[in-house]
Simulated scan of single mutants.
Amino acid sequence: MILRETKLKIDNLVGQDEDLVIDGKSFSSRLMLGTGKYKNTDLALSSIMISQASIVTVAVRRLQSSNILDDSNILHGLPLDTVWLLPNTAGCTTVQEAIRVASLGHEICKRLGQVNNKFVKLEVISDPQYLLPDPIGTLKAAEYLVNKGYSVLPYMYPDPILARQLEEIGCSTVMPLASPIGSGQGLQNIENLQIIIENSSVPVIIDAGLGTSSDAVKSIEIGASAVLVNSAIANSQSPELMAKAMQLGVKSGRYSYLSKRMVKSDRAVPSSPSTGLLF
């Protein structure tokens, strides 16, 4: 009886957890997936399905060189009635280029049936060596796209001031990097990430550099609304298994965040009572 009541209580608490909401649209998963670097399309699709991700991002420039309705195109296999497409401007080095590619992304979404999808993951990266986002270019492109009615999800260096500026001009989220793209180094700027999370009124999505499921756990544990993962899954020895690990990691981190961890102590605190002992 007690076990059943405890299970019902836990199920009720878990059921009360709110969905991820971006610009008024709800998503059941806090794990977002990229589609690059997989050995083949079937493996990418299988990993996405196993992850139960609600949002999948695709580089528009990569789609430009192929027929989006071709059987070999990853978009052909995605269940677009349940998966929300997030076109991204990866590979763009200037403001003008990013704006043009964002527009193409919207047209692709319309062609695939997501007519009202004006989401765009904004990337303006002029640094070919370290792939760090251009803060000024990102801000300019974001402001233009917001004014054109786009839901802008900007990829950015973990700079709390820039995060505030992007929110003030109307971005739907901020997406600070954990560490350089594809590096797998994990959370290298955790203090800055925590400042951004504490001061943001929009969802904070930690993007780039996550290497394994424990990085996803920690990201959500410190209060991030979601994580976006690509290389950690695609470059693992078993992408499908890592996709499952990431899915469970995000859930674990969220439950831990909602539980509110114990207060740290600078000394040991006994678990057993020191009074009322038999001897």
Rank of each mutant, 00 (worst) to 15 (best):
K9C: 02
S26G: 06
V58Q: 07
I22R: 13
P79Q: 07
L75T: 07
N88L: 04
L33A: 05
V60A: 09
A90G: 12
L78V: 11
G36R: 15
D81C: 02
D42W: 09
G77R: 13
N40T: 07
L85E: 02
D17H: 10
N40E: 10
T6D: 08
R62P: 00
D19S: 15
S29T: 10
S47G: 02
S28M: 04
R61D: 04
N88E: 08
Y38N: 08
A90I: 12
D11N: 14
L20H: 06
M32D: 00
Y38K: 10
L78F: 05
N88M: 04
L85K: 01
L45W: 06
A59W: 12
N67R: 09
A44W: 00
V14C: 06
Q52N: 11
L13H: 09
L78M: 06
M32A: 08
L80P: 02
L8W: 09
M32P: 03
R61H: 04
E18T: 15
Q52V: 04
V56P: 03
S54W: 02
V58T: 07
L80H: 06
F27R: 11
P79I: 12
G15K: 14
S51L: 03
V83A: 04
N67F: 13
G34A: 12
N73G: 11
Q64A: 05
K37D: 02
D19W: 12
A44N: 07
S51T: 03
T89S: 08
V14A: 07
K7N: 12
I50R: 08
V83M: 00
T41L: 07
I55F: 02
S28Y: 13
Q52L: 01
L8I: 14
I22F: 06
K37P: 02
G36K: 15
A90Y: 11
D11S: 12
I2H: 12
A53E: 01
H76M: 10
N12V: 08
Q64D: 10
L43Y: 05
M1K: 07
N67V: 14
L13W: 09
V58W: 04
S72L: 09
S66C: 10
L31V: 11
S46Y: 01
V58P: 00
L31W: 04
G36C: 14
S29G: 06
R30K: 15
D81T: 13
I50P: 00
D71W: 06
D70K: 11
S66V: 15
S66P: 00
T82Y: 01
N12M: 09
D23Y: 09
V83P: 00
T35S: 15
L69N: 15
G24R: 13
T6G: 01
P87W: 09
D71S: 15
I2P: 03
I2K: 05
I50V: 14
D11P: 01
H76K: 14
F27W: 05
N67W: 13
Q64M: 07
S54R: 06
R4M: 09
I68D: 03
D42A: 15
V56Q: 02
L63T: 02
L75D: 10
R62W: 10
L13C: 08
I68C: 03
D17C: 09
